[in-house]
């Protein structure tokens, strides 16, 4: 993350890290076809914390999978750092997912038979980091999320919040530029969800990692920079968080 910034400034002058151009996604064929995304144009800037909000079935998760290169679009282009994802080979895609993007899922998706530390070191193994170095870095990351003392616990022995924190540590282990979180707090209680949000905010502020987080959680409005409202497979509107903070503040009263 030490590269010199700015090759492709957006209209407001910030560097764009993820850009989607008319992205479409259709599930099924013919009569049964469902249009999950119908031509999404968006740009996400470097270092930004973006919340993707919208009702269930609006295409949030599909959008999330598209920009994470986890699924291929039916039409349109996705550019990550101005590289067209469709142009990448399987091996290059694996490299992208391993080194450049970190993923956090609603259901944590930890590997059940591995300890917390092993879970964190898996992506480093894929990146070719030596086991000793991976252990060292893994312990640091677990320390960052406050789970250093539980490094040898398996997912089944941990609470949801702890599992999600391990997942965050795992997503950060190869120092990605982008962190994609798909409803990270949906399965957690208020307090734990708050902890997770705080950790994410810290990662965003201290490490300058771009975060895209799809969510129903309105507390996220307090920590994010911009909000994308998704409805019926399109981006309805994009708002600056500071413009609506007052509105939400009066309802939730959760922010600092």
């Amino acid at each position: 993350m030490s590269e010199s910034p700015a090759t492709a400034p957006s209209s407001d002058g910030k560097a764009v890290i993820i850009r989607t151009l008319g992205v479409k996604k259709v599930y099924g064929e013919g009569e049964a076809a469902t249009y999950a995304l119908q031509g999404v144009d968006s740009s996400i800037h470097r270092g930004e914390f973006i919340a993707v909000m919208g009702p269930s079935g609006s295409g949030k998760s599909t959008f999330f999978n598209m920009i994470g290169a986890l699924d291929s679009p039916s039409g349109g282009r996705i550019l990550i750092d101005e590289v067209d994802v469709a142009q990448l080979s399987a091996s290059e895609l694996a490299f992208l997912r391993c080194q450049k993007i970190g993923y956090i899922f609603q259901s944590y998706n930890l590997i059940r038979y591995m300890t917390a530390l092993e879970n964190v070191t898996v992506p480093m193994a894929f990146a070719g980091v030596s086991p000793e170095e991976a252990r060292r870095r893994g312990m640091n990351l677990l320390d960052l999320v406050g789970l250093a003392d539980r490094w040898d616990h398996r997912p089944i022995e941990m609470s949801g919040g702890q599992q999600q924190r391990v997942a965050i540590a795992r997503s950060m282990c190869n120092q990605p530029k982008i962190l994609l979180a798909d409803e990270p707090t949906a399965n957690l209680d208020l307090k734990t969800g708050q902890d997770i949000l705080e950790i994410m905010q810290r990662i965003n502020k201290e490490r300058g990692v771009t975060i895209v987080c799809s969510t129903h959680d309105h507390r996220l409005l307090a920590v994010c920079d911009r909000i994308m409202w998704v409805r019926d497979g399109t981006i309805e509107r994009v708002e600056e968080a500071k413009d609506i903070k007052i509105k939400v503040g009066s309802i939730g009263g959760e922010e600092h």
Binding site: S4, D81, S89, E92, A94, Q99
Partner: peptide
């Protein structure tokens, strides 16, 4: 900005 290099995975 320097683009993400399309390197092959290890």
């Amino acid at each position: 900005m320097k683009p993400i290099e399309a390197k092959n995975q290890v």
